[in-house]
């Protein structure tokens, strides 16, 4: 007897898995740099306590989208946006939404580690101080918790007052993550956070991302597809400003639905 019962439980994007609430919901989001449209009609939900990876060739709009999530993209003077991006149900593009509040809730880690030219301690204490925390004991505690959270405490606890520039690239990047954790964000955006790091430092940051997702929602832009496959729960593929495919990471990397995704992840173009 031939049974053509499909035994494979295909993971559909909206299957019956426990749905986590969304931290971000983009709806019909468009963005232009001057006359050039960089993002086209993006609908994109980002779930809480997930690692969401964004992949795509250079110039596809993935970093632009990431920077839209904390409105850093507005630093480019010619930027125009249309549509909606909701953070916890509120449209962040609305003039009523305070950008400072947004950036407190949505921290960012960049491609190249960018510590301040200050001590390790001051790098982490800087944000909380700006938010009005003056008490030394509280600050000490925040610094320790944040450095522990970024898995770098053991390496720096005996030299907290040395300049952060004395750390290796990998350590600097984890310090920047600690700096981000110190303001207790809700979401952490990471823009190619390991592309300037050596393989071991890269794996440390990847491990860290796995730990961090217990308490934070993480959105990561990466050129390293194996990294996306290793660390993310969901993966989005952007191409020429469009969101081509967004699905569970295991589906994207084992059986993508769109030929353009398949061609990109198998290295046929891009």
């Amino acid at each position: 007897m031939i049974s053509t019962t499909n035994k494979n439980k295909q993971a559909e994007p909206n299957n019956k898995k426990l749905q986590k609430p969304n931290v971000f919901e983009a709806k019909g989001f468009n963005l232009w740099y001057g006359e050039d449209q960089a993002l086209k009609n993006i609908d994109f939900d980002i779930a809480e306590n997930n690692v969401t990876a964004i992949i795509g060739p250079s110039g596809c709009g993935k970093s632009t989208f990431l920077k839209s999530l904390n409105r850093m993209v507005e630093l480019v003077p010619t930027v125009k946006m249309a549509g909606e991006i909701q953070y916890r149900g509120k449209n962040i593009l609305s003039s009523k939404f305070g950008v400072e509040e947004l950036r407190t809730k949505v921290g960012m880690v960049f491609q190249k580690p960018n510590p301040f030219p200050k001590s390790i301690y001051e790098n982490v204490a800087y944000g909380p101080r700006i938010h009005g925390i003056r008490d030394k004991v509280t600050l000490d505690q925040i610094v320790e918790t944040s450095l522990k959270g970024a898995a770098i405490w053991d390496e720096v606890k005996d030299r907290l007052h040395e300049n952060a520039y004395g750390l290796s690239g990998g350590q600097q990047q984890r310090l920047c993550i600690a700096r981000c954790l110190a303001i207790e964000p809700d979401v952490i955006l990471m823009d190619e956070p390991t592309s300037a790091l050596d393989p071991i430092s890269t794996l440390k940051v990847e491990e860290l991302v796995q730990q961090l997702k217990q308490n934070f929602s993480i959105v990561i832009v990466t050129h390293n597809m194996q990294q996306a496959a290793r660390i993310s729960d969901k993966t989005a593929f952007f191409l020429s400003g469009e969101l081509v495919e967004y699905n569970d990471t295991d589906v994207i990397f084992s059986n993508p639905r769109d030929n353009r995704t398949e061609d990109y992840i198998t290295g046929r173009f891009g």
Partner: peptide, 9 residues
């Protein structure tokens, strides 16, 4: 197709 079938059943 990327789908598992049981044809020996």
């Amino acid at each position: 197709k990327g789908q598992q079938y049981d044809l020996n059943a």
